[in-house]
Design a protein around this nucleic acid. Structure first.
Lengths: 342, 342
DNA sequence: TAAGGGTGTTTGAACGATCAAACACCCTGA
DNA sequence: TCAGGGTGTTTGATCGTTCAAACACCCTTA
């Protein structure tokens, strides 16, 4: 036989019907053990493998998630999403899912792609990677109730814990706080913060991680105005980081250490300050490793796994309703990063 | 009507049969213009979109290419493949193709994935990104005549221009030669080369790009032994690059400029030599941009486009046989990189 | 006027799987 | 002996599309 074997071929060999073969594959528990064994034997013998498209046509499910590849690898930090994508792909198999890529020029185009992929039954749903305030994409997906999970909280949403919007995210506050604490443990007191200008969901959270830690530090005796002086904000970028640090120094501020909102900024700081002052970046990109920069590392494997779990759970919505609220929230996951000291 | 419209719905509205609608979609030229117009009108009116799985089931084609996401983003240069992947995804649409990701632990596992994806009709074929000498993967694919295109020449193969093995690649010799010429034009004479230890298909080629250019340089009067002194090899990595350059200097060699086989090595050189000596890297990674390093840039968009073209052409093999040989080779593309001077 | 050829459209069947309902069988209890 | 219920398996129909062959029609040409 030259063509691929089908359920029928398997059925014939095992001496059962099509449907029984199908049952062995999809709901083994309803088949009697000895029958099941015979069928499994035949499957192995023929090297049978279900035809994915036929199954999709019938079940109207593709077991595939779509994910958008961002248009520009925006500098250094692009690699974070690449690593997330990688982890996602790697673990998708274990969840019986596949990952289909697509690109889009802008949010509107992306929505058009959603429509195209869903209508063609190419994907069951999506994983979104960078969501913005009042994101038109999530609104569209909710409206058309298409399953989705975002990597990143819906900053600015009325209810961040809306069960209809499932998300996975990394606790930036905790990460930066840890980095700051690590600096203070070195015995220094003037830990500066180099971040992004508000408003920025992620950025503001990271900034607070530093600020809260500094204020709470015992015996440091720092007050709000002291902190204001130790903080500087600029757009993301190596050059911008260098410029900002120079400005900080020009003000005559004493800087014992620097905690940054990104590796790009950290690299910028490094180029001005050299290795005399300890610096911590964020995202632990390959660049950080290359120049031996400490950095906050996001648990991307965990994040990917959690995203897949949430995605798979999208179907039976509401049946696991938790009256306690966020106590044991099954729809959202906030993961803890850790500092990678070098 | 709540469900997705089908060809039948369109047919009814346009007053034609299923097949005519199908023809309008797949071979518009055989449909009379006025009929076609009526059908297109109906398609637009209903917002009809063909069901991809149904089509795939019938045609036994998935219009999807599989691509493996490499297990580890190996340092800085990982971004090259990411950018290629990106370009591939972006242009796939124009070729009516989709990109499906998968991962694999090792070549054997990858072959198992090939089998799984092909049997399930999930993909039509593959684009391979890093091929090695006597690659078991390409051999398997050839044996099972599964369509594939590699990004990278089959180094060491008996016949690199074997028409059964289609490939796209970038002319590293030319890229490094250009970089070297650029250095010489600055008026310097002692251009060193920092590369990888042989044997390495890509590495050896790049090295020759430098060597040939140096030997051919008019008025330089360099001979083989002089070149040997100007050359040093080490494994890829920032640290390794620094060490190698230090060794070169320790030997008392005069170094006016450095051409490197990668950005990692270039960064390593930069950390030892500083900005006093011009350095050129390879791949133009974000890191190179960040530290203002000149670098050879691979035309990844072109490479992706060419890969897709070749992939689409895999079907009718042999009908475009070219007796002249490589004169106008339709199965392979060697692209020219350019130096991005900073 | 009938046979032949070309063009454009329709019809029946198939792709390979799963759903839903029917069916066969065994066991129990009236 | 037969109704009733449970378990395990089979049968017919279906998902939405395209292939292959049939068909209707018009235009030539003998």
């Amino acid at each position: 036989m030259t063509r691929q074997p089908t359920v029928l071929d398997v059925a014939e060999i095992a001496g059962v019907s099509r449907q029984t073969v199908s049952n062995v594959l999809n709901s083994p528990h309803i088949v009697r053990p000895d029958t099941r064994e015979r069928v499994e034997e035949a499957i192995k013998q023929l090297g049978y493998r279900p035809h994915a498209s036929a199954r999709r046509l019938r079940t109207r499910k593709s077991s595939t998630i779509g994910i958008r590849l961002d248009p520009v690898t925006n500098g250094i930090s692009g690699s974070v999403l690449d690593r997330f994508l990688h982890a996602l792909t790697e673990q998708a198999d274990a969840f019986g899912l596949r990952v289909l890529l697509f690109t889009a020029r802008d949010p509107d185009d992306e929505i058009a792609q959603f429509e195209r992929l869903l209508d063609g039954a190419d994907v069951d749903g999506f994983v979104l990677t960078s969501t913005t305030y009042e994101d038109p994409r999530t609104e569209w997906l909710l409206e058309h109730d298409a399953p989705f999970v975002t990597f990143g909280r819906p900053w600015g949403a009325a209810d961040v814990y809306d069960p209809r919007h499932r998300w996975v995210d990394v606790d930036g506050h905790h990460g930066v706080a840890e980095a700051t604490r690590g600096m203070l443990e070195l015995g220094v007191s003037h830990v500066a913060y180099l971040g992004w200008p508000p408003p920025s969901g992620t950025g503001d959270e990271r900034r607070l991680g530093w600020r809260d830690t500094m204020l709470a530090a015992p015996g440091l005796g720092l007050r709000e105005p002291d902190l204001d002086a130790l903080e500087i904000a600029c757009e993301d970028g190596v050059e911008q980081g260098s410029t900002a640090v120079r400005a900080l120094l020009a003000r005559g501020v004493r800087v014992d250490a620097v905690v940054c909102a990104s590796d790009s900024l950290a690299l910028g700081a490094l180029m001005v300050l050299g290795t005399s002052v300890p610096i911590v970046g964020y995202d632990n990109t390959p660049v950080a490793a290359a120049v031996k920069l400490s950095s906050v590392e996001q648990p991307l494997e965990q994040a990917a796994g959690a995203a897949l779990e949430l995605f798979r759970a999208v179907g039976p919505r509401g049946d696991s309703f938790d009256p306690d609220g966020s106590a044991n929230d099954p729809d959202h996951r906030l993961l803890r990063p850790r500092v990678f000291w070098r």
